[in-house]
Structures are given as C-alpha cells and as structure tokens.
Design a protein around this nucleic acid. Sequence first.
RNA 1: GCGCCCGUAGCUCAGCUGGAUAGAGCGCUGCCCUCCGAAGGCAGAGGUCAGGGGUUCGAAUCCCUUCGGGCGCGCCA
Length: 591
Amino acid sequence: MADTSNIFATVLDRVHAALRALAASGTLPALDASRVVVEPPRDVTHGDMATNAAMVLTKEAGRKPRELAELIAEKLRADELIATVDVAGPGFINLTLKPNVWADALRTAITAGADYGRNTGKGEPVNVEYVSANPTGPMHVGHGRGAVFGDALANLLEYAGRNVTREYYINDAGAQVDVLARSAYLRYREALGETITIPEGFYPGDYLKPVGEALAAEHGAALNQMPEEKWLPIVRAKAIDMMMASIRGDLAVLNVKQEVFFSERSLTENGDQVRATIEWLRQQGHVYQGRLPPPKGAPIEDWEDREQTLFRATAFGDDVDRPLMKSDGSYTYFASDIAYHKSKFDRGFHAMIDVWGADHGGYIKRIQAAVKAVTGGRGELDVKIVQLVRLLRAGEPVKMSKRAGDFVTLREVVDEVGRDAVRFMMLYRKNDAVLDFDLAKVIEQSRENPVFYVQYGHARAYSIFRNARDVLPDLPEEAAARVAYLAKAPLEFLVDAAELALMKKIAAYPRLIEAAAAAHEPHRVAFYLYELASEFHAHWTRGGKESPHLRFIIQSDPRLTVARLALVQGVVTVLASGLNLLGVGAPEEMR
RNA sequence: GCGCCCGUAGCUCAGCUGGAUAGAGCGCUGCCCUCCGAAGGCAGAGGUCAGGGGUUCGAAUCCCUUCGGGCGCGCCA
C-alpha cells in the first residue's frame, strides 16, 4: 500500500502506470519494474526527481536505454503532477514537478502534524531486542548506546507502520549471576559487621553494598547459618531484582522504553524449553554427538578433546558446528539463546532484530544459523552491532571511575550532559562505527554540536511565531489552533528558490522515514534533521541585511507573512517529528 | 591461522542497499550584525574514495586480492 504523503512513491506509481500503458498498447512487453526507483538526483539542476527505469529495463525490453527512456518520458509528459521531463546522460529520466505539488506537500505536512510521514498501514509484527545487559551491575556507556539505538530503531519502525514489540532478554541464568550472588553475599556479611576482602573474579563495585544491606535487613544473620546451596538462590534472586531495578532506572533516565522483559531462567523453569528445542533439533537431524577440532590461532590452555553435543550450524551457513552442552552437563548460553529465539518466533515474530555490542560480532552467524533451523527458514533475524563508545573530555580520554568498579556509568554521563545530548550524539553516527563521545563538546552551544544546532532550529521557529503577532494579531498561540490557521495559508506566495528548496526538503521526509526503517538505520533521521535545520538557518540569515524582503515576517504584507509562517510550521512539524523519533526534546526556546 | 566490521578532504564523519561533476562539520583564508535569536550565515582552498584486478550502460557502494586498524575464535554471557 503506497503511503500517499510520500511524493516519491506517488511518482513511482506514475512511472509504473506509464510502463503498464506501454505494455497495454503493445509497444513494450510486460516488464518487471521491481528495480525501478524514483529518487532525488544528486545535482539539483537535473530536476526534482530522476528515475532509472529505462536503464534497468533496457535488456528486458530489448531497447536501447535512451530510446526506451523517450517512450516512457512521452507518457509522463501527460501527467498532471509533472511539469517537465528530460532524458539525460545514459538514460536517466529527469522530472520537474509543478510548483503546486510542493505546496500541496507542505500543506499535507502541516495538516498531518505529528503523523506526517507515518505509515498507518497494518504492520508486520517485528520484535526488537535491545540492551539485554547482564543484571550484574549498573549500565555503562556502551550499554547506553545499544539502548538508545534500539529504542530509536523501534520508534522508527513503528512510525513506518510495523507492529513493534520492544524486548529485553534478562541473562539471569548461568555462571555470571552466581558470581553476582557470591559477591552480594560478601556485601551482606559486610553489612553484618564483618571485614571483607573481595577475591579476584568477584564483582568489586560499591553498587552491591545496598544489596548486602537489604539482605541483612531482610534476613538478619539467618543466611550466615546456611550452606551455600541454600543461600545462593535467595541472594541471587535478590541481587538480580535489585540490579534490574537499577537498570530499569537507568533506562528510564534515558527515556528508553521496553514492554517485555524476558527471563532466560524462565526457559528452563517453566518446563524445559531448552531441552525441548534441542530434542526437536535432534529429531530434525541438526544435533549430533561429535568432536570439534581445536581453534587455530590462540592456543587454549586446558584443551581437552572430548565428544560433545553439537548443533550442525555448518548446514545453515556457519563456519563450524557449535556446542550446546557444557562439560558439567548444563546448557551453553547458545543453547538457551536458540530456545529464546524460537520463543520469539512462536510468539508470532517472523521478523526479529537483535541489537548487540561489538564484542558479540563473532556470534552472529551461529544465531542466524540457529534461527534458520528452528523456524524452518521462515524466521528472519537481523543483528545490529553497536560499536564501542570512547568517552572523551575536550579531546582527552576520561578516567575510569573506581567507585563503580572500573567503568563510567551511563547514569554519570546522563547526569552531566543531559538525556538529549546523549541520545542525539549516539544516533549521530552509524551503529557499526566507533563513537567518540566528548563530554565537553556535547554541551557546547554552537554549530559544532548537532544536538544544539537542530534544537536551536526548532526554538528559532517558535521565536518567529512569537514575533509574528505584531503583524498577525490573530495568530493563535495554542499549537493546534495555530496549525489550523496556517493550514489555510496562501502557499502560492512561496516562490523564492530557498523557500521552494525547504518545501522539497520537507516533502522528502516520508521517503526518508521509509528508507531508514527498511535499512534499520535510525542515524539517517539524525542526519536529515541536521540538513533540514541547516537549510532553515541559512534561509533565516538570508533574510538579514542581504535580502530583507525574504524575511518570514513582512510588516506590510500579512498574507505573505501567513504563507511564510506556514513554511516555518512545516519545518517545525518535521523537526519535532524527527526529534521525537530519536527520543530527543524539541524545545520552544533555548535557555 | 580463520571469521566478521572498518579504511572517503589535514581532523571527525555522511554518502539514501549500483546512478550523472563524491558531500557536511571542524580547522585554514576572506567576508556579513542600526536586521524576525550572530547561539547564525556566505565565499574560497582542500580527494588516486587505502592499493591492485574484475563484474556492467555505470562502482566509494557488488566479487577477488594485497596492505593497514578493530572485535571475536569449545565447556563466558
């Protein structure tokens, strides 16, 4: 279903129609137009849009590209949206649309408001799993990047019309949470007055002190009388609870929302789903008992050649088969993870996205292999890797905080620079690129700081509304009323090249949303917003000494002023929408 | 040794899943405030898209290869 607010999609439909018409008249055979695209040309002098139809279809049509282009162009010339059609270069068809198309697009944007560019179609269910930090301590900055990325991606997919579920996988099983329990137990004894020393391999951070105190308050000395196998589950449950509460608090501070918190432990406790999954795979012939050759490079100290339970990952694109059981008879993390992804599929998610840290990159092939096996090829898993964050202050690496146990917590960073700065900067980079995060730069109020620059554009627009009341006393202050007022503006007054360019930029938003969602790349939204803000700022300054007649507010001409305010409203609409997708505030003034 | 990611202007990075003459910010040079927010803007200089092959109408983008960085490599999660 085409999104009618996407002007590029609309024009693509017209190209398809032209091809169908040519087929119907027998001029051309019926062609597969799936590779045909309509996109903005790099060089604006080529027009508003270009299509590659002729070049892509040349072989199938049995015509030379330019000859084919002429046939299509002839049809498009009759279209009521299109002003001029040119065939250029190797066979591009360049289109210039009629000015009223852009005015209509602007009016659509203003009227749609917060829903501009949103696809309201019935969406495919998609599960986005992100953060999934081990509940063994507070979140650090790297977790924060995954959290912000996943959250923004989920927002974006939802806006693009997918039916999104946001999920957190709690790794509350396995050896690490047992170490957590033992570390918390030491803090418990400390709370009871004992002097403790924390051995190597335990979690040393101060953040476990409150856990120890809570256990002491709840159980008194009782746990001290028990053997480990008795107190460990109690302490572990308490520690996990408190760590998850802390993590949820960190997520709330970042405005990251998730609705499903899925416990790894639940996979084995509510009937053994891990065992069931492995048995099912075994019946399919994907599990066998066998030996693995030792890895080449890094020699493993205590390598022991033994037979083990293996998943035939190589049958699904992985490099080696992967173990499902540890030597002590318990499941590997991988085994649980297979059952977990099967659970997602069974819950109706054929489309899944996992957001992982860079250190898990080597794990992608095997989990994708497992998803193929366990869903019979019907499930699709995209794994997005978020790269490291390097914390800097004015170009210098930030020292680690001892108090937190050797890392800078996410909370510390958010407290220092604010949620908006953290979120925007973490999205202003492709997810798989290393991110330098400079605590000094992100609070700077200058063009060098994109967070500020975009928000400033939004605030500046509101400043215009405030000042415009001198010329338009009846301009409503309340947002919805103002929008209704401006939606009726005489947009034919917007004829300046820069005004037209801004309208086109606004009209490009729905297409941007769809492309960013399809590619699972929220950073594109951040870059687009920066570009839009930049064009807006530039146009603003042009209305200074240089060409006062281009100002938004023209004292002598209320009708022109209304038209220009409508353009400002279009900018406001898109900036607010985009910032909202990124989870960043859109302030009406900067203070 | 193998796998994955990355290599684009002096620096930090985009480049819309293969499109036309590769872009932005910073830095550098020179400009613009009796003016709706100068917290801004304009102009200029700056490139062997790491190197080399290939695929095709067309490659920064896809394939092969070399070099250089990062991550990972039974029984951690």
